[in-house]
Design a protein around this nucleic acid. Structure first.
Length: 490
RNA sequence: GCCCCCAUCGUCUAGAGGCCUAGGACAACACCCUUUCACGGUGUAGACAGCGAUUCGAAUUCGCUUGGGGGUACCA
């Protein structure tokens, strides 16, 4: 069997969408599983809608996800160039071949004429199919139209190709994920393969590129199913080997509509910015339509690739549920090595003066605050009380905890006793326990005791482990803050 | 309108005629653990869209209906 070659061909008209990322992932997994090659091709035929900024975003996002390509615009390869706009000199040659073989013809119809045909079809409740009115234009007629200044587009002759290669008008193909798919070619109008301005259309350019790049398997979204029939016909008309196709269900938003910006993040780079780990994103997206054979859902890409079976991908659409992604993300954050986590957290701590903390203190702070993080960005709101001499007290905490008489008693006592404590983790742990004990004897619950201290030093009732917190704050600052919360000056 | 695809808990899914009184994960809820919050642990609730057909037997096969998605461009 020849080498498996798959590709991802994004159009740089926006940042890399998670849907595209999933398609890229499945192509990547298929390539890895079959020891094949994964090719990246940029489809920027439509110059108006594309930009270099998006190309860069696509590169960066794919790399961040770990979906490294074997051939592409930046790394090159034997079948380049890998950017469609750089391939424009390739396309006319095959157009000519199609013209010569009679599988294509010039069309001089104006947009108005075409529009009229469509309206008529709608009025008659029929599927719109191009009338083929330009199919048999004589040379004189063409010359006349040209003289009028009309520039022809080139259309593909569907019926001719169908008859040349198939007995029935029903065109079938065996889809890698959906099984046998079919379509009546009589319902496919002769479509344009080269615009009147000389630019190739999508359906034509992909075929040429896929054929020339020796792509063996085309794995893409099911929104391309209707294109597949057209493409198969072109492959055949040009004598190219038709690749296998596999169509994936779409990713939908929770409201079952197309996943768009109003639902939250949609671009990979948005997710990264919000504090998602690309490992979590990849893992999550792999689970949309595919299930691991051992039921173990959390696993790295390599393990997924080894277990990947394209025939077992679900053929239905799936909804992008942020909840599970968040769970996955928290899981991956927990697995992060301390040093890595520290570095990844820094971009979310820019509002604080990190020089206030020694590396040791910073490490400790992260250790005691990392547990509940769902997103890396959660760290921002989790640590304000580690900085500055004073701390902002939440108004509710003030009235419901600090203003309590028992809290005041505890705090006054704490300020006095803490002066004498040796400020080490072990000792603090013991002293705190002892401290809770003495107040318990006086009828104040350990919980209330701890809350009072926590509230005074952090301004909150929830947060990091107490011992660690006091350790990072240091003796002087802890007592300072505790004292400030005492109503009666000592 | 026309064409195509899809259909198991709220969500992602396991399930390829008897193993299914349908399994797992996320979310929800309850309890436990606990110096707060969290983490963790245990448990509860929750689905085969409907109707026909085939069969001794159907979530699994077929048809229809309904619902959802996609395509209908000189966009990609």
């Amino acid at each position: 069997m020849s080498e498996v070659r798959v590709r991802i061909a994004p159009s740089p008209s926006g940042n890399l969408h998670v849907g595209t990322a999933r398609t890229a992932l499945f192509n990547y997994l298929f390539a890895k599983k079959n020891n094949g090659k994964f090719v990246l091709r940029i489809e920027d035929t439509d110059a108006e809608r594309t930009s270099q900024e998006y190309v860069d975003n696509i590169f960066d996002s794919l790399k961040a996800l770990g979906l490294n390509w074997d051939e592409g615009p930046d790394v090159g390869g034997n079948y380049g160039p890998y950017t469609q706009s750089e391939r424009f000199d390739i396309y006319p040659k095959y157009i000519q071949e199609l013209l010569d073989k009679g599988f294509a013809y010039e069309c001089f119809c104006t947009p108005e004429e075409l529009e009229a045909e469509k309206e008529e079809a709608t009025a008659n409740k029929k599927a719109y199919v191009y009338s083929k009115k330009c199919e048999n234009l004589t040379d004189e007629e063409k010359a006349k139209l040209r003289a009028e200044g009309r520039k022809p587009a080139i259309r593909f002759n569907v019926a001719k190709a169908q008859k040349a290669f198939h007995e029935s008008s029903i065109l079938k193909f065996d889809d890698l994920v959906k099984g046998e798919l079919q379509m009546d070619t009589n319902l496919i109008g002769d479509f344009v393969i080269m615009k009147s301005n000389g630019a190739p259309t999508y359906n034509y350019a992909v075929v040429i590129d896929d054929a020339l790049m020796k792509i063996t398997h085309v794995i893409r979204g099911e929104d391309h199913i209707s294109n597949t029939y057209k493409q198969i016909l072109i492959f055949e008309a040009l004598g190219f080997e038709v690749p296998r196709f596999g169509h994936l269900g779409m990713i939908l938003a929770p409201d079952r509509s197309k996943l768009s910006k109003r639902h939250g993040a949609t671009a990979v780079s948005d997710f990264v910015e919000q504090g998602y780990l690309t490992e979590a994103l990849v893992n999550f997206v792999a689970l949309l339509g595919w299930a691991p054979s051992d039921g173990e859902e959390v696993k790295p890409v390599d393990a997924i690739a080894a277990d990947f079976r394209i025939g077992e991908i679900s053929s239905s659409n799936s909804i992008f549920e942020y909840d599970k992604l968040r769970w996955m993300n928290s899981h991956y954050i927990k697995m992060l090595p301390m040093d890595t986590l520290k570095e990844m957290l820094k971009p979310y701590l820019t509002r604080y003066d990190l020089t206030e903390l020694s590396d040791e203190q910073f490490t400790k702070m992260v250790e005691i605050t990392r547990e509940p993080l769902t997103l890396l960005s959660d760290i921002t709101e989790a640590v304000p009380y580690f900085f500055g001499q004073d701390v902002e007290i939440d108004p509710e905490v003030q009235t419901e905890v600090l203003d309590l008489e028992e809290s005041q008693k505890v705090l006054n006592d704490f300020v006095e006793k803490a002066q004498t404590w040796e400020w080490t983790e072990e000792n603090l742990h013991n002293k705190l326990e002892e401290f809770r004990g003495t107040w318990k004897e006086q009828g104040i619950k350990p919980k209330a005791t701890m809350w009072a201290i926590r509230a005074a030093v952090s301004g909150r009732t929830r947060g990091a482990d107490m011992v660690g917190l006091l350790e990072v704050l240091g003796k002087e600052r802890t007592i300072h803050r505790a004292q400030k919360s005492c109503k009666v000056a000592k």
